[in-house]
Structure formats: C-alpha cells, structure tokens
C-alpha cells in the first residue's frame, strides 16, 4: 500500500500565489477527484506535484511513501511512481511514442522486450489506432487521439499514482468513456501482486466521473480545498454548480456574479 501525502502546499507562478495551502492524502487504489472552477489552481496543483519548470513552491510538502517528492527532479518523480496525464499534451516532433516508452521503461529498470505487444494490447483496449504507435508524439493528433495516447502511456508505465489534469477536456463522448474506464480499471487492478493505482483526477466537470468512480471529492476554490466529501459532492456540483461552495463574502466582492457564469465568478 502506497501513500501520497500533500501537506500545506503553497505555490506561486510569476510571483502570484496560486496554491494557498493544499492538504490531501491518497492511498493505492483510491480515486480522488479535485474539482474546481477556472482559475482555482487545478493545473498548478498537478504541475507542482510533477515538477514542471516555472512554478515556485512557497511552503509545504509532497511525500510519496516517505520520499520527499519536491526535492527530486521531474524524471525521478516519474520513476518513483508519479505520472502526469497532461491537459494539453506537448507535441514533440520526430520523437516516436514507442521510443519514448522504451526509454521510460529502461530508466525504471524495467524489461522492454514485451513493449511491442503491450502497446498493441493497450492500443486495442482504448481504441488508439495502431498506426499511431510509431509516430511522433502528439504531432497532428486530434484532441481525442492525444488523450487516448496519454492514457495508453499511463497504462504501459503503470505508476503508483496518476495525476490527471483535465483528462476530459477536448474529448468526445466515446474517447472520454474509453479513457476514463481504463483509468478506473487500473485503480482496481491488483493482478500479479501489484498494488492498484491511486488517482488524483483534477477536473472542472463531473462528466469524467461517470466512468471513473471517485471515492473522495474535493472542491478547490482559489487555491484552497474548501470542502471534501464522498461522491455525492460531485452530484451536488452537477445540479447546483460551484455556487454552493463559494464563501458569501466573495459573492459580495463580485456583484456581477449573479448575472455572469461560474467561470467569471472564479476567474478573479
């Protein structure tokens, strides 16, 4: 059983504090959804955990089974068991998906001889076209193909914890179902004596959670988790929107809130 523990995490981008004290504890096999409106700090949370350049940690810690994650460079965070599924996967011209996964397995000291078959199996399972396996990463892929590609990499690398940054954005309904089901399966899969994957699913919309069943839901507003609960919280969001979780004083601060959309309200 692995544990990912985030304590009092504060971080800034370009001098502006975006995360203002995040506490979360995840265990193997658990699915945690972190939901929030635009500007809440969702992408920042995923970037800071994974070590993306350009983010400054002001305070707090991220520990994976007692290892200080924030002290490691990004590639080592990956090799000890963290994986980021990106909202906008980067195009890397001329660098082939299968070559990257081969290098990625090698740096984990894992056998690469079965990679070819593994790729074929995973591609088939999530509806990723076989012809795209030996193609430059994300180049000329549609939004849906990019997210299937991200999900395929996740399944091949099989981390201890997956951080999904808006997996659902840009996805048609079929791709969303295929990708979220695969993640759900990984979170339940303890075959071969492996621990099931833990999931931190960061999302704006609850539609991701139709197939990916969260055990815990956290509401992130302005860099803080304002409420945590069970899956029923997502249902509340679905019917009432984020308004239910907004402190009253912020509504007073932003008089146009009643007229504008939710995104306007939180993108302050």
């Amino acid at each position: 059983m692995s544990t990912l523990e985030i304590n009092g995490l504060r971080a800034s981008v370009a001098g502006k504090e975006i995360l203002r004290g995040i506490d979360l504890v995840l265990h193997s096999g658990e699915v945690h959804a972190v939901m929030g409106p635009n500007g809440a700090g969702k992408s920042t949370l995923s970037a800071v955990i994974m070590g993306k350049p350009g983010y400054e940690v002001l305070a707090g810690s991220v520990m994976l089974d007692g290892v200080d994650v924030l002290a490691l460079p990004a590639w080592q965070r990956a090799t000890i068991g963290l994986h980021l599924v990106m909202q906008y996967p980067t195009e890397v011209p001329g660098v082939m998906l299968d070559d990257v996964l081969s290098e990625a397995l090698a740096s984990r000291g894992r056998d690469t001889s079965a990679l070819g078959q593994m790729l074929l199996d995973e591609a088939d399972r999530i509806g990723f076209e076989e012809r795209l396996l030996h193609r430059p990463l994300n180049v000329d892929l549609s939004g849906g193909e990019k997210k299937r590609n991200e999900t395929l990499q996740l399944a091949v690398l099989r981390p201890r914890f997956a951080i999904l940054d808006e997996l659902d954005s840009g996805l048609d309904i079929d791709a969303l179902r295929d990708c979220s089901r695969r993640v759900e399966d990984l979170s339940n899969d303890s075959s071969g004596g492996r621990e099931p994957m833990g999931v931190l699913a960061i999302t704006h919309y609850s539609r991701l959670l139709n197939e990916l069943k969260p055990d815990h839901v956290h509401i992130l507003v302005k860099g803080r988790i304002v409420t945590s609960g069970g899956p029923e919280l997502a249902d509340v969001l679905e019917t009432d929107g984020y308004a239910a979780f907004v402190p009253a004083d912020e509504l007073i601060d932003e008089p146009s809130a009643s007229a504008g959309g939710l995104d306007d309200l939180f993108a302050l």
Binding site: L84, V95, D99, L101
Partner: peptide, 22 residues
C-alpha cells in the same frame, strides 16, 4: 518538450538527445 519527456521518467540528457534527433 523536454518536460514532457522528463515527466515520463526520462533523464534530462536523454530527453534532450531525443528532442534534437527528433
């Protein structure tokens, strides 16, 4: 591009080689 490859667990110098060759 470098971060994308590093986030897959690839060492920075190997990531850079892959990007240049690509």
């Amino acid at each position: 591009q470098r971060f994308y490859l590093e986030s897959r667990g690839i060492r920075p110098e190997i990531a850079e080689r892959l990007v240049v060759l690509g």
